[in-house]
Design a protein around this nucleic acid. Sequence first.
DNA 1: TTGTATGCGTTATCAA
DNA 2: TTGATAACGCATACAA
Lengths: 344, 344
Amino acid sequence: MGKFKIKPTTLKDIATELNISIATVSKSLKSYSDVSRSTRAAVVKMVKKMNYNPNVAAVNLRTQQSKTIGVIIPTVAHQFFSEVLSGIIEEAEKNGYLVITLQSNEQVDSEKRQILLLQHKRVDGILISLSNETYKFKHIEEVIQNNIPVVLFDKISKIVNCSKVTINDCQAAYDAVTYLIKKGYKKIAHFRGSLKPQNSIDRFVGYKKALVDNGISFDPLLVYLCDNNDDFNDGFQNARKLLDEQPDVDAIFAITDSVAVGIYNCFHEVGIKVPEDIAIFGFSNWFMSSVLTPSLSTIQQPGFEMGRKSCEILLEEIKNLKNDISYNFQQVVLPTSLVIRNST
Amino acid sequence: MGKFKIKPTTLKDIATELNISIATVSKSLKSYSDVSRSTRAAVVKMVKKMNYNPNVAAVNLRTQQSKTIGVIIPTVAHQFFSEVLSGIIEEAEKNGYLVITLQSNEQVDSEKRQILLLQHKRVDGILISLSNETYKFKHIEEVIQNNIPVVLFDKISKIVNCSKVTINDCQAAYDAVTYLIKKGYKKIAHFRGSLKPQNSIDRFVGYKKALVDNGISFDPLLVYLCDNNDDFNDGFQNARKLLDEQPDVDAIFAITDSVAVGIYNCFHEVGIKVPEDIAIFGFSNWFMSSVLTPSLSTIQQPGFEMGRKSCEILLEEIKNLKNDISYNFQQVVLPTSLVIRNST
DNA sequence: TTGTATGCGTTATCAA
DNA sequence: TTGATAACGCATACAA
């Protein structure tokens, strides 16, 4: 199958064909005023005829930009992140940018390596959602110092100085737990996420605050840690533990829908009824949660829009940087809402 | 925030610093034999000290390759395709390639435009899973004629001459339906997918063949079409229709798990019991299907491995092409298996 | 073993 | 209105 390589048309080909200079051809293709109508027309015609397309590598080299952005997320095969990625790709494509995607698999070392990879690739900007392991941010800050725009989304760091797109995790958790309390649940457990991610911390804080604000004292024994990067099993195992240790809990606020599903399965096995025996509240509103039995109460989290918005901000910063326009970092907080179903 | 741009180190910087020629520096960094140990050592040291990284655009221009591959899938936010993409990205990264992802949203026009985009970007190869609309393949064949390796996966075309990675959709469907028949179901409906995709056709053919091979005559009235790119609703609406039109159906073979979930929800609403009243068989083994009530019988489809393998083949072809080694197109069929749960 | 020179395909400056 | 020319940063054939 190894055939000879067909060489794509270059500006030079068109120039020789038309008996004019490369410079003129180049200018004809741009919005330069100083080209006669007739030659421009001739060039455009020949471009079509010879199926000319600019050599991106040459343009990149010359213009020092790649029209490419990089994305680093924990994993692509994940309902929420795949939605975010979808939003990023769509927004980027709409603006003439292509997207290179990398997955950290929740490992800082991968994250660091990939940031380097993207910088060497000379991407024009980088979008990152931090790994669960990440708690130092030098590798992120270095990118920013190198003057490559960075936008953090979902799993961000408060102390890194750059634009960020999130939801209000604390408030969302607060609202969910408050709802449970108003509904009459008295002993509410929390299946929390890993210790380092800001959104995991914020949801925990929101849970605590809701309790205290409603006159329920916070009990650390009601908090179960889910940090094995396997939400379903984390939920499943911790549900078992909880039944052992805290049998009189009447509601659980889970850090994410997949943890909630793990709880469902455990309860299903041992015959605990949801919500009659114990209510369950999730987080993220994955498609799955609407078709479970009983359907899961959860928090609507706008994945696609988070990706779209992050990308929009990044492209803005890239543009400003290119045009030497100063700009301020943005902190966008996307709205969430409670989705009340039959599990609470 | 608009700061000055820091210029990255180039070979020239290192050369002047070391008082040697650019060529020597360049050669030191490659596996050339004709550089003295001492100068090579000096170069390597300076490279570290000055934090040199090759300018990818320059290398691309010079070597005429981008170390980048393109992927076009119907949509990223999809359990199966996100798994495939994950496999692609992992395999590519392992081999020093980066991945640009585009989504066709099931539209041929997007597919065509994106193929052009990727070619102009001079990617070294392209992986494609065709849109539901695609039934002409000129745009794919052109890429191949331009001598850019293409590997089709999952939603392929039989008549395009290139490597392909699939499962045996016909056999898998055949096995599922045969299982239903052996289990005693007599009147089995099929909720089929769009008319054009090969895998949709194959699953339909497998369904038909299983019936006939088991002495059940095929009844076209038992086939319902799901082609609105909204599996859940397709399943839901068609389930309703089926209850109206074919109330004595005792099993449904659905083209995919999400269609099955739509059926579940309809049946749940009207009080049809699964599998007592009607059994349901899915396809793909999404995570969801294991946590539904009742859990869904389905077909295990290896998404990650499909992505990994497709990418592996593509990189092989890229390498062979570069080294002018001839190669044959591969047709890989990945194994599937029945996952029997409580819905049948 | 090292260096010189050329070209990859563009863009952009300046002169004609 | 056009064109000659110099980069952009690197790789490589060839000369020294």
